[in-house]
Amino acid sequence: MKQFRIAIVGCGNISRMHFDAYVPHPDRIQIVAVCDTVPEHVQEIQQQYGVPQGFSSLEEMIQGAAWDVAVVCTPTHVRKQVVDTLAAAGKHIFVEKPFADSYQDAQHMVDTCQQAHVKLAVNQNFRYHYPFEMARQQVAQGKIGHVAAIVHQDLMLRQDAGWRIQQPRHALAIMGIHWFDGFRWILGDEATTLTCALNTSKAIQCTGETEAAITIQFSRGTLTSYVESFSSPRDRTETILIGDTGELVLTYEQMQLFDRDHRKTPREQWENPYRGTNKPVASFLGLDQLLTAIEQDAEPANSGRDNLKTVALLDGAYRSAETQHPVTFREGTPL
């Protein structure tokens, strides 16, 4: 197994999940450098995780340290410039989500990395942290037959701070990007139409939306209904997959299978091994997919090109809410 030298761009809160994910795997990952425009953040990370080199800019880190892959933990609105700089330096890139603020920016970054012959992957860690991968396997095996509908609720009381609350895109950019990707991942299918309505609750301090109601039609007929709330006093996150012969019910903790003979108690039940405090493991799995793709000169399942279709749903939701009209897609690409 090859060891890769990793540099982390951005030392904010989300970066700590990445450090916690990679430090237990020294045979695979050696974190050699970090950079952030706030020197105190760099110093804190170096002291806490023992990173040997710290820099105040990306350009300084490119010139001053030897490394193979960048993990980008910057705010989304500065990511395009960061990816451009990394690609020009010939660095492979693992980027936080949402990958981009717009489909146009995401397409630009994918094209830039392709032209530079570097690989680009996205940390869609909820494919594992939430039991989407478990459901994908059961659906692929025909455990519930054709999936006629997905009903998803994500309700919480969430007050963010800092740069996030200044952005015009809020709840969907933070959480919707996970769920859009999860629906695609479970079904192995792409959307054909999407409608969205947004609202902002006075209970939460932010510029963007706190509430969303979305309907998505997929090409093989699955109808998805999704509600997001950042102002709900009561937390509830649940995904119900309704199939011809059964039903899967997903929460962060577990997945349950029901059918006509088992309507009140599950026929089968699985615990999610990546739940709760095991969340960093899901990010390691994502990065390792990229590293394996580099070794094999292949495209990872979580590639930037694949993630374009997730960003298309996010971007389409905002466009539908603004125009009050459905957004249409062809093979996951917006029309």
Results as ranks from 00 to 15, higher is better:
1 M>A: 12
5 R>A: 06
10 G>S: 01
12 G>K: 11
15 S>T: 06
16 R>S: 11
19 F>Y: 13
25 H>V: 00
30 Q>E: 15
31 I>E: 11
33 A>F: 02
35 C>D: 01
35 C>W: 04
41 H>A: 09
46 Q>G: 05
47 Q>M: 15
48 Q>R: 14
48 Q>D: 10
52 P>N: 11
54 G>N: 00
55 F>P: 04
59 E>G: 00
60 E>I: 01
60 E>C: 02
61 M>D: 08
63 Q>K: 13
63 Q>I: 10
71 V>G: 12
73 C>P: 07
73 C>H: 11
79 R>W: 08
79 R>K: 12
81 Q>R: 13
81 Q>E: 15
89 A>N: 03
91 K>E: 10
92 H>K: 09
93 I>T: 02
96 E>D: 09
97 K>R: 07
100 A>L: 01
104 Q>R: 09
105 D>T: 11
108 H>E: 12
110 V>G: 01
111 D>M: 10
117 H>S: 14
126 F>A: 12
131 P>I: 02
136 R>Q: 07
141 Q>F: 00
143 K>D: 08
147 V>N: 05
147 V>S: 03
154 D>G: 05
154 D>Q: 10
160 D>E: 14
162 G>P: 11
164 R>V: 09
165 I>Y: 09
165 I>Q: 09
172 L>R: 06
179 W>M: 14
192 T>A: 06
193 T>L: 07
194 L>C: 00
196 C>K: 03
198 L>V: 05
203 A>V: 12
207 T>Q: 14
211 E>S: 02
214 I>N: 09
220 R>H: 15
224 T>S: 11
227 V>L: 05
229 S>V: 12
235 D>Q: 15
237 T>I: 13
237 T>Y: 12
245 T>E: 14
245 T>A: 14
246 G>K: 01
248 L>H: 03
249 V>H: 15
253 E>I: 04
253 E>N: 10
256 Q>M: 13
261 D>P: 04
265 T>F: 03
266 P>V: 05
268 E>D: 10
270 W>N: 04
273 P>E: 08
278 N>D: 09
280 P>K: 00
280 P>T: 00
281 V>I: 13
283 S>L: 13
284 F>N: 02
284 F>D: 01
286 G>A: 03
287 L>V: 11
291 L>M: 14
294 I>H: 00
306 D>S: 12
309 K>S: 08
310 T>F: 00
317 A>H: 07
318 Y>R: 04
320 S>W: 07
320 S>G: 11
325 H>T: 14
325 H>G: 04
327 V>M: 08
329 F>R: 04
331 E>F: 07
